[in-house]
Write a protein that binds this DNA or RNA. Sequence first.
DNA 1: CTGAAAGCGCTAACAG
DNA 2: CTGTTAGCGCTTTCAG
Lengths: 332, 332
Amino acid sequence: MVKISDVAREAGVSAATVSRALNNNPKVDPKLAERVREAAKRLEYRPNGIARSLRRQSTDVLALIISDVSNPFFTAITRGVEDVAQKAGLSVLLCNADEDPAKEATYLSVAEQEQVAGVIISPHSADTDVSRLRAAGIPFVVIDRPLNENADSVMVHSREGARGATNHLIDAGWKRPACVTGPSDATTACERRDGYLDAIRDHGGLEELFVHAPFRQHGGSEAAARLLDRDDRPDAIFVANAQMALGVLAELSLRKLRIGQDVGIITFDDAPWAPFISPPMSVVAQPAYDIGAQAAQLLVERVRKTAPDAVRRITLSTTLIVRDSSRRLSPV
Amino acid sequence: MVKISDVAREAGVSAATVSRALNNNPKVDPKLAERVREAAKRLEYRPNGIARSLRRQSTDVLALIISDVSNPFFTAITRGVEDVAQKAGLSVLLCNADEDPAKEATYLSVAEQEQVAGVIISPHSADTDVSRLRAAGIPFVVIDRPLNENADSVMVHSREGARGATNHLIDAGWKRPACVTGPSDATTACERRDGYLDAIRDHGGLEELFVHAPFRQHGGSEAAARLLDRDDRPDAIFVANAQMALGVLAELSLRKLRIGQDVGIITFDDAPWAPFISPPMSVVAQPAYDIGAQAAQLLVERVRKTAPDAVRRITLSTTLIVRDSSRRLSPV
DNA sequence: CTGAAAGCGCTAACAG
DNA sequence: CTGTTAGCGCTTTCAG
């Protein structure tokens, strides 16, 4: 490994000058700087990022801790984060907590030990412990799911989105809309359930039918099975995320229930495949890319200390996209 | 930030002893060790990973550089990598090169500067330059796409899979199968095209119809459009990845072409949504999770230096899953 | 078994 | 503008 002192010797200057030249410090003689750059190139010198971080007491990497890499919603967020981080010269370390509080804690701890410049996290629950980040002075912004404490955040009006989706189902003529949502310790799962309940109560005379299950395809299947096993089974389902929706679809097909006739369906998240299933899936789209981009923007400003001290909270809106899965083809 | 010397003072020992105790060095008095652990806990001490890495000249993180986070194939790989890395006590830093050689180079450079313990990479092209990794002594394993050099790797028999898919199309009665594949600088794109060509030539009398486009949904749309604009348009399409397949689907629906009647389709990668589109999509499934798991296993052994010196190359097979999109409903 | 001391590679004060 | 010096926090010889 070639180090700074090697370059210094090659260029006939001191290590300090090499450091300054390579970091574009303006008060170094342009000629010398050029000589240094050439020497560095000749030797294929790469600064040791670790040593640099230790000395500077800071790094150029952000950690993005997400709940599930295989959820397209989170990968879309990732792109938003990466695009703005890259513009700011920061790399992003993507951590997949996998809806597992233990993994989440591990990554939080890694972020601390590796002294990342900042963290963007979609916490598994509102109780996720970020105190160590605070203690270590690492700025962070919370996305997707709120935290039981005051922090910069970029959220979505989940509840309103859910309410709108459920209302849409009712307006379309479905008589017994149910809700399939995520685990009860995930705030987004509860908010979407509550939005569903808001709509049910608004209309009166409707039964509250919801079930919690993991935010995964199998969770969707299980929840749907439980609902459809009832004697008074629902005739429409509002699903809280796209992966669960796939599970619901599987269960529906197993039971030979036809979408649009026997049952209506609408889901949170406009997954890429939503327009292509049959019938095309109605969705509540979240501005995933923007969530990531705005969170990264906030974080970069914190890292650069160009942001005001006050906590900033951004809440974005969802968009109802009606395709065919929620329409009622043969009304009674 | 509480550091090792603080713990040393609190426990009334030297920093060296704290270090040894916390690293479970067996030759430290159990009583002392206990005292140290208590002191550390009391002070909420967290070792500074950066300082440790600088001193040890190594880290506990692997970098996984993938071509596209939003491709389910790569997220499935990611899970495989994470599961085995975690068991080995290593964290994984996920880097999204986004099919962009510049981003890829950046991440390679980050991996080097941050002295990661090892790298798993799906190189954008066979010419991707990993010489710096070699020079820095960082072990790496190549996945998905081969490199123009001898290295540990976990690949898939793409060409055979593509050939099998095309043969299946022909056997199903389609008369003019075409191929929509990725960019010509991506090796997997070429292999899948070549597998298609193998099948075409095997049968004789068939025209070679293929088009290269980006490995993205819009790439699939564009390629399909080009193919379907021909006077002698194909009646079946073998698509080289799931994201492109979605684009092809979009184009087909735009032109009101019915799958199974007007056109047959089969794609690489068993995306979660494949069974749910209409008709259910036939696919060539890749063992994505295993690719990740085996690559990580190889890498861990390199990192731990428990592997033989010889380069190891693993090639996994694909599985043809016939659903309905490739069947011909009304044969001529 | 424990402590003192050296040093990983870099950058920031401080002189010159 | 450049060089010398000191240390970031940790681990690891080397003595004791």
